[in-house]
Nucleic acid binder design. Structure first.
Lengths: 349, 349
DNA sequence: CTGAAAGCGCTTACAG
DNA sequence: CTGAAAGCGCTTACAG
């Protein structure tokens, strides 16, 4: 059964004895338009009585904007990892958008979809702007869209891209982890990356690790670095390989919690103990890190703030064109638990 | 700078030398309308040459539908718990919607928002249907919306509600957990609920536990039941209380993984061992359960399928009105790890 | 097989 | 301070 006929602004105008113009002006609270309080009141009452709600599609067409932003969520080999941040990120994004009266379209991009499948959202003007999370590369489509002036914000980074972006400060995060280990007295500190080095975050975390060693006057030995690949298994093998050396590291910075869980297991399986034989610091602060043995010291990624800041960036672009600060990096923080062997602040189980 | 002027169906019509009607017919592939292949071809080429994409807002207004569904995500005291399922659920929903050409609006409802804040989506026709996840109660608003014939699907259940729903079979899940413990030889099996009993899922899981004991000829003792409250702390206290009894249970079904993690800790802190002194089976199959000590045997909730089925339910309602099966329950499955003490299939660390 | 015209329900200069 | 009219860009009976 069709729903009872919706009332239109015309119905409200007739009932209130005014024109549709006036109805629109009043209901939208248009500023600098003085309308007598009585008229205003009459219109408000009529609208209420008729259960009138402006039709979104009609508004959008007339206004030429959708008051909607879309989040394009790339699913890659790091899907599990990124999914862990999705809820907090979404909360940050939607909270910020709501404050500006915007809605969010969520659009995951499956691995089997063409890389430009999300363009439809922009070309068909389903949204006024696109937040792109985890794009693989700066495709020509993306570039063209940006050149056209269509509002775009990257969550994450693309090398040499002019598209505004918001990301976590990967280099700083790595520094916090490594500085902490140095402060605890470690001199032979290894690293397992979160992912292959064609990922920007991977390179940045590695660079942060190297910088910190250098500044502390410690040697940077390539033999202490292994490349992780998102999952526990990669961490397991990487740690095995590190421990198999003649002089293994006494501490390892693993740039991903997921990878770190595999690394933890590798230490155990070799009959060694964390943190006594090998100290470990992770990256991300996933929920599960509180339940590992021992609980994992890690670098916290502020997912909610990332979402919030990304959406605010978008709002600024929609309102004023280019943003004041096109490339934003959010600070990380170290969460000290037991796996690093810092006794004072650890949360031992 | 404003983007270069978009071309309209009028531009395409002119370039192809036809009317806008024909353009629309061709581009939308309207069936049972025969148009000469040459004309068709000419229109397609014109559209491509002009980079023409139909304007979504105009289409929506003309067609009277948005091809959009909104997911209303209630954030309550169980926010952390539900967030764990969000990524897989979203993937299930969007995958199903996409197959029908629909988009998804994600709309979290914060605790401080009025309970009917989501109505705006329906009243303003921002979407053609609403998926409500975790509504607290069958509010009059909800009822009115449903009476009007507006497409509504519940993810979860509301007692005595006529609104179509999709949920996991909580009772079956509880049975699988308890039957497994009985099969392992346990006779004194306790239970800690996932939440207070005003939550439907809580009541159903408790009922499944009781039924299973009864059918196995085991006594149903209220002294072996405790009420959990979503978080680890509640599980910690509940388990303490169970163990403090003269004859504590040898196994406990904890109807939530999060609560079960607290319960695990309580067992350890009392100097007992899992599963040797107390066997534990959880519920949900959260990612973290693989990292607890020992890894948790648990009842798997099929989050992706829940999302997929919910969206399919919505599509059916939008297409044909009332669905054939208004209340759908999806099956759970037992994931055997180490905490239950079943040696054969355990995944010991 | 194709076109002229009305309509979807708003907003917004433009007059008065 | 308020209204008549045009316009947003499509789709869809209705004719021919």
């Amino acid at each position: 059964m069709p729903s009872p006929k919706r009332s239109t602004s015309y119905d409200v105008a007739r009932l209130a004895g005014v024109s549709r113009t006036t109805v629109s002006l009043v209901l939208n609270n248009v500023p600098n338009v003085h309308i007598s309080p009585e008229t205003r009141q009459r219109i408000l009452e009529a609208a209420q009585q008729l259960h009138y709600y402006p039709h979104a599609s009609a508004r959008r067409l007339a206004q030429g904007k959708t008051a909607t932003v879309a989040l394009v969520w790339h699913r890659g080999p790091d899907a599990d990892y990124r999914d862990a941040f999705l809820p907090a990120l979404l909360q940050g994004i939607t909270r910020a958008l709501r404050a500006h009266g915007y809605h969010l379209i969520f659009r995951p991009l499956e691995p089997d979809e063409p890389d430009d499948a999300f363009l439809e959202l922009a070309q068909g003007r389903h949204a006024d702007g696109l937040i792109l999370s985890g794009p693989r590369a700066d495709s020509p489509y993306l570039h063209a869209l940006h050149e056209e002036g269509f509002p775009l914000v990257l969550h994450g980074q693309l090398p040499d891209s002019e598209i505004p972006s918001v990301d976590v400060d990967n280099c700083q995060g790595a520094r916090q982890a490594v500085e902490h280990l140095i402060r605890l007295g470690h001199r032979r500190i290894g690293m397992i990356t979160n992912a292959p080095l064609d990922y920007v975050a991977s390179r940045q975390r590695l660079e942060g690790y190297r910088q910190t060693l250098r500044e502390a006057g410690l040697p940077v030995e390539e033999s202490l670095v292994r490349i992780g690949n998102f999952d526990e298994e990669s961490g397991y093998h990487a740690m095995q390989s590190l421990l198999a050396q003649p002089t293994p590291p006494t501490a390892v910075f693993v740039a991903s919690d997921m990878v770190a869980m595999g690394a933890l297991k590798a230490v155990w399986d070799r009959g060694l103990r964390v943190p006594d034989d090998v100290a470990i610091v992770g990256f991300d602060d996933l929920a599960a890190t509180r339940f590992t043995i021992p609980p994992l010291t890690t670098v916290r990624v502020p997912a909610f703030q990332l979402g919030h800041e990304t959406a605010e960036q978008m709002m600024e672009i929609i309102a004023h064109g280019a943003p004041a600060h096109p490339h934003i990096l959010l600070p990380t923080s170290l969460v000290v638990r037991a796996s690093c062997g810092a006794p004072a602040t650890s949360e031992r189980r």
